[in-house]
Computed example of a mutant assay.
Amino acid sequence: MIKYRPIITIADENNQEVVSDFLERLRQQSFHSVKAKMHLLFILRALDLLTVTPLSVLQDNVEITIDLDGMERTKRYEIVKPLGVKPIYELRYGLNENEHLRFTFFPFFYDGVESYVFVKVFKKTKQPPSDETDQMRDLTYQMFQRVLANPELYLKGED
Rank of each mutant, 00 (worst) to 15 (best):
M1V: 07
I2A: 05
I2Y: 07
K3V: 12
K3F: 07
Y4L: 14
Y4M: 11
I8R: 08
T9F: 13
A11S: 12
A11C: 12
E13R: 13
E13Y: 00
N15E: 11
N15W: 03
N15V: 07
V18D: 15
V18H: 09
V19L: 14
S20D: 05
D21L: 11
L23Q: 05
R25C: 11
R27E: 15
R27G: 11
Q29W: 13
Q29M: 10
S30Y: 10
F31S: 05
F31K: 06
S33M: 04
S33L: 02
K37G: 05
M38T: 09
H39Q: 06
H39D: 03
L40G: 07
L40Y: 11
L40Q: 12
L40A: 01
L41Q: 09
L41V: 03
I43N: 00
L44D: 14
R45P: 00
R45Q: 05
R45C: 11
A46K: 05
L47K: 09
D48K: 15
D48G: 15
T51M: 12
V52D: 00
P54T: 10
L55D: 00
L55N: 05
V57W: 05
L58W: 04
L58F: 04
L58C: 03
N61E: 15
D67N: 08
D67A: 04
L68Q: 15
L68T: 14
G70T: 06
E72S: 07
E72Q: 06
E72L: 03
E72W: 01
T74Q: 08
T74R: 00
Y77F: 04
I79V: 10
I79N: 13
I79C: 12
V80L: 05
K81D: 14
K81G: 07
G84A: 01
V85N: 00
K86W: 03
P87L: 07
P87E: 03
P87Y: 07
I88W: 08
E90C: 06
E90P: 10
G94E: 03
L95W: 11
N96W: 10
E97M: 09
E99M: 03
E99C: 09
F103G: 02
T104F: 06
F106E: 07
F106I: 01
P107G: 03
F108N: 09
Y116I: 13
Y116R: 01
V117K: 00
F118V: 12
V119K: 11
V121G: 08
K123E: 01
T125H: 00
T125Y: 02
K126F: 14
P129I: 00
S130E: 14
D131N: 09
D131R: 03
D131H: 02
T133K: 04
D134S: 02
Q135N: 10
R137Y: 06
Y141M: 14
Q142G: 01
Q142M: 01
M143V: 14
F144L: 13
Q145Y: 08
Q145E: 09
R146Y: 08
L148D: 06
A149P: 10
A149D: 14
E152W: 12
L153V: 02
L153T: 02
L153P: 00
Y154A: 11
L155W: 01
K156I: 05
K156F: 13
D159I: 10
D159F: 12
